[in-house]
Amino acid sequence: MELYILLIFMIFGAIVAIEARDLLSSVIAVGAVGFALCLAFLVLKAPDLAITQLVVEILCLIILIRATINRDLPLAIEGRWFFNTVSTIVFVAVFLFFAYTALKELPAFGDPIMSVVKRYIEQGTTETGAVNLVSAVILDFRAYDTLGEATVLFASVIGIMAILRRKGRKKIEEKEDAS
């Protein structure tokens, strides 16, 4: 029951975030959606995820506010407004129809299959020594996943530094030499 309330709150927050005129209020609305997701993880018995989501959400909010503060938004509705809206809604409706058809094949809510994870639950503690099974999975059974995650994280940091840095030092020195 709490889950339904949280999901409906998340849907309203997402609508506000998409439709708000002001960029800052849109960013804050998406922050509210993220914190509701954090609460939903707690309800779904995933405390590790709730902690990670909280930290990541705060960082995302800081980055997004840094990008949007002191910037104007000239709201322009012109051109093919009707065509764009209708084609988008048709695409979303087709997607929703096929996804609804696929949802019928899934196991019912509250009754997972648990075929892969049976061995982890039975022997996870004796094989890895970790009491928390989530950390046993990410740090022992699937440690290469975590290695790949760290690789992606560092690659994105390198990309951000390459995009956001000012003009390189070497180029300025070359210009001074030329002049």
Partner: peptide, 30 residues
């Protein structure tokens, strides 16, 4: 117990989504 495997996978996905958001925002600032 609830299934720990999706939780472990989603833990990776959350951190990667932070990296993606930071990269896209830096491109938008540029």
């Amino acid at each position: 117990m609830v299934d720990p495997l999706p939780q472990a996978v989603v833990l990776t996905s959350i951190v990667i989504s932070l990296a993606v958001t930071a990269l896209v925002i830096s491109i938008a600032i540029r």
